[in-house]
Computed example of a mutant assay.
Amino acid sequence: WEPHQAVWIGFPGNPEEWPVGLEAAQLEVAAFANAVSDRGAGETVVLVCRNKVDANVAQALVAPCVIVVTESFGDIWLRDTAPIFSIDSESLSGRNFGFNGWGGKYQMPGDQDIGQRLAKRFDLPIEDQGWILEGGAIDGDGAGRLITTEQCVLNANRNDHLTKEQVDQHLCEAFGKQNICWLGDGLIADHTDGHVDNLARFVAPGRVAIPQSDIQGDPNTEIFEDAARRAQSSGLDVVRLPSAGLYKVDGDVAPASYMNFYIGNVAVVVPQYGAENDAEAVAQIAALFPDRKVIGLSSKALLRGGGSFHCISQQIPQQA
């Protein structure tokens, strides 16, 4: 919620990665970019396309104030492949972590160095960290607190040579955080091995939002309750938001979550799935951000790729 100077957003275009619903996913991303840009009143929006063909498609869908650039990459999840930026002593810096395709599951050319290339393109300083971490695996409140999940960050398919204590130390060294809240598992069927940005998000210093299921058959009910207990035990103020409930894509459970919202300078964009709690999720998130427009936008096509608006974006803080 601190001011952003810009945000990078990945634009889908590879038909091998999007064999179904590519055009719909492109429309959803364009609508997201336009909402965050807010006709130039919001932050600078940079839509990252993998080639000129995709760039031409994107340019036709977005407002003139949205910047469209071309850089090769494997898939659109820049939250995980781009550097994580922060302001330290009024100086902007980016942490560039290793990326191994979410534990070796989806390794595609270009994803390993897209962060370095984007940073160079926009003349932004970054530091290589030497261990694997995805941006969707952590969330911070800017006031010394960080939240993550054991399922993902301690997974043997990421950093099998590091203990929990060593990861704690690395996180504190990278981000200057002193209080790390470890949640357990992430959502069922999340191919990222449980990214926290589908489960728990800071909405103010020391205050974290976590879903609460009110729908029969929700596969994540126990996961939500365990996360809430752990967060409260860590001294965090927990606010409960609606769950998308049991949501399936082509008959399989999918990790649909309203927690994958994006907080921009003027707008908060909330995923919508055509689910029972869509409108209520927008209303409750709006109550948490009274100084911003809170907009619900379709994310059904993006979910086919495994994520939503927070996953495809990486913000760059504004220096004072």
Rank of each mutant, 00 (worst) to 15 (best):
W1D: 13
W1H: 15
P3V: 04
I9C: 03
G10N: 01
G13T: 02
N14M: 09
P15T: 05
V20Y: 12
G21S: 03
G21F: 02
A24R: 08
L27S: 15
L27G: 12
F32L: 00
F32I: 00
A33H: 01
A33L: 03
A35L: 07
A35P: 07
V36P: 08
G40S: 03
G42A: 02
G42I: 00
G42L: 01
V46I: 14
N51Y: 04
N51P: 10
K52M: 15
K52N: 15
V53P: 11
D54A: 12
A58M: 07
L61M: 10
A63E: 15
P64G: 01
I67D: 15
I67Y: 14
V69I: 11
E71C: 04
S72W: 13
S72K: 14
F73I: 09
D75N: 11
I76T: 11
R79F: 11
R79Q: 07
I84Y: 13
F85K: 10
F85Y: 14
S86R: 13
D88G: 12
S91W: 13
S93E: 14
F97D: 06
G98N: 12
N100D: 06
Y106K: 12
Q107F: 12
Q112Y: 11
G115D: 04
R117Q: 01
L118W: 01
K120F: 13
L124P: 09
L124G: 06
G130S: 05
I132S: 05
I132F: 07
L133C: 00
I138F: 03
D139F: 08
A143H: 15
A143T: 15
G144V: 03
R145C: 12
I147T: 09
T148R: 03
T149I: 05
E150D: 02
Q151F: 08
H161F: 14
H161A: 13
T163M: 07
K164G: 11
E165R: 13
Q166I: 10
L171V: 07
F175E: 05
Q178C: 11
W182N: 02
L183I: 01
H191K: 12
T192E: 05
D193S: 06
H195K: 06
D197E: 05
N198V: 06
N198M: 08
V203Q: 04
G206P: 10
R207A: 13
P211A: 00
S213R: 04
D214F: 11
I215N: 08
I215K: 06
I215D: 11
Q216G: 13
G217E: 04
F224S: 00
F224E: 03
A228V: 07
A228R: 08
A228C: 02
R229H: 14
R230G: 02
A231L: 07
A231M: 05
S233Y: 14
S233Q: 15
G235Q: 07
G235I: 03
V239Y: 03
R240C: 02
V249D: 09
D250F: 10
D250N: 10
V253S: 09
P255D: 02
Y258T: 01
F261I: 00
N265P: 09
N265M: 09
V266W: 12
A267S: 09
A267F: 04
V270P: 06
Q272T: 11
A275S: 09
N277A: 10
V282D: 00
F289E: 08
F289S: 03
D291Y: 10
L297E: 00
S298V: 02
K300T: 13
G306T: 05
S308L: 08
S313P: 11
Q315N: 10
Q315K: 11
A320F: 13
